[in-house]
Computed example of a mutant assay.
Amino acid sequence: MTANRYVSSLKYSLYVITHPLDGFWDLTHEKRGSLAAANTIVLLTLLARIMSLQYTSFQFMQVYREGINIFVYIASILFPLVLFCVGNWGLTTLFDGKGKLSQICMGVGYALAPYPLIRFPMIILSNLITVEEGAFYNFALVFMMGWIAVLMICAMMEIHEYSMTKTILFMIASVFAMLVMIFILLLFFSMISQGISYFVSIVKEIMFRM
C-alpha cells in the first residue's frame, strides 16, 4: 500500500462517521478503506484511553494507577473487539452474511473513529473546567459512545447487507457468541493448566523416588 493510499483511506474515516450508510458501503464494496487505516484508528483509540487514565482531571476520573497493568488493560480492550469480529463473522456466515472477516474488522475499526476525535479534546477540557461545568464533559462522553454504537450498527448492516432489525439481532447474538468463546477459552486453558500440573507432579514423583 502506498503512502497516499494509506492517508486517503485514513482521511476517509471522517466521511464514514458523518455519512455512515454511504460511507460503510463504499468502505468495503468500493474499497475506499484499508485495514492499515482501521488498525491505526484502533491504536489511536487505545492511546486515547491510556492517556485519559494518566491525564484526565481527578475531578472526572479517579484512577488507582499503581494497580493498573498496562498490558492487561490493553488486552481488555482489544480482546473483546477481536472476539466480536470473530463471533459476528461466524454467525453471519451461517445466515447469508456478505461480509468477510477482514471487512468486519475494518468496519469495527472505522466505527471507533469518534473515540480519539472526542476523547483527546475531552482530556484537555477536563483540566480546564470545574465540577459544576462537568455536565458538558459527561454529555460529550455519552454522545461519543452513542455515536460509536450507531456507527457499529450501520457498519454491520452495510457490510452484511442486512436489514436494521436483522443487524441488531445478530449483533446481540454476537455478544452471546463472545461469551461462549470466552467460556471455551477458559475451559481450554484450565485443562492445559491441569495437564501441566499433572505432568509436573509425575516428574517430581519420579525425581523423589530416584
Results as ranks from 00 to 15, higher is better:
Gly67Arg: 01
Pro80His: 13
Ile68His: 11
Phe60Gly: 11
Leu47Gly: 12
Leu47Cys: 12
Leu44Asp: 06
Thr40Glu: 11
Val63Asn: 10
Ala48Val: 00
Tyr55Ile: 04
Phe60Asp: 06
Leu46Asn: 09
Thr92Pro: 00
Leu46Lys: 05
Ile77Arg: 02
Glu66Ile: 07
Val72Ser: 08
Met51Thr: 02
Tyr55Trp: 15
Arg65Ile: 00
Leu53Phe: 14
Thr40Pro: 15
Val42Pro: 00
Ser57Ile: 09
Leu46Glu: 04
Ile74Asp: 04
Met51Asn: 04
Leu43Trp: 12
Ala36Ser: 12
Ala75Asp: 03
Asn69His: 12
Pro80Met: 13
Asn39Ala: 14
Phe79Ile: 09
Gly67Trp: 04
Ser57Pro: 15
Glu66Ala: 07
Val72Pro: 01
Tyr55Ala: 04
Ser76Glu: 05
Val86Leu: 08
Thr56Gln: 14
Ser57Asp: 15
Gln62Asp: 03
Thr40Met: 13
Ser52Asp: 09
Thr40Arg: 13
Arg49Gly: 05
Ala37Val: 10
Gln62Phe: 14
Thr93Cys: 03
Tyr73Thr: 01
Tyr73Cys: 02
Met61Phe: 05
Phe71Glu: 15
Asp96Thr: 02
Thr93Glu: 09
Phe60Asn: 05
Val63Cys: 02
Ile70Glu: 05
Ala37Phe: 06
Leu46Gly: 12
Leu83Asn: 11
Ile70Arg: 10
Arg49Trp: 09
Leu83Thr: 08
Val82Asn: 04
Asn69Tyr: 06
Val42Ser: 02
Tyr73Lys: 07
Leu78Asn: 07
Ile70Gly: 11
Asp96Tyr: 09
Tyr55Leu: 12
Phe84Ser: 00
Asn88Pro: 08
Gly67Gln: 08
Ala75Trp: 12
Phe95Pro: 02
Ile74Glu: 02
Ile50Ser: 04
Pro80Trp: 11
Leu46Phe: 11
Leu94Glu: 12
Leu94Asp: 07
Ala37Asn: 09
Asn88Ser: 10
Asn88Phe: 13
Ser76Ile: 07
Thr56His: 14
Ala48Ile: 01
Gln59Ile: 04
Leu83Val: 00
Val72Gly: 11
Ala37Cys: 06
Thr45Asn: 07
Leu83Ser: 14
Val82Tyr: 10
Asn69Phe: 08
Gly90Trp: 03
Leu43Pro: 04
Val82Phe: 11
Val63Asp: 06
Tyr64Phe: 13
Phe71Ser: 11
Gln54Thr: 07
Phe58Pro: 06
Ile41Val: 14
Trp89Asn: 07
Trp89Cys: 05
Tyr64Lys: 13
Leu46Met: 07
Val86Cys: 01
Gln54Tyr: 14
Cys85Met: 08
Tyr73Asp: 06
Phe79Thr: 10
Val72Asn: 15
Phe60Met: 03
Ile68Ser: 03
Ala38Leu: 07
Tyr73Met: 05
Val82Met: 08
Gln62Thr: 05
Tyr64Ile: 03
Ser52Phe: 06
Arg49Phe: 06
Thr56Cys: 10
Leu47Ser: 14
Leu44Phe: 15
Ala48Ser: 08
Met61Pro: 03
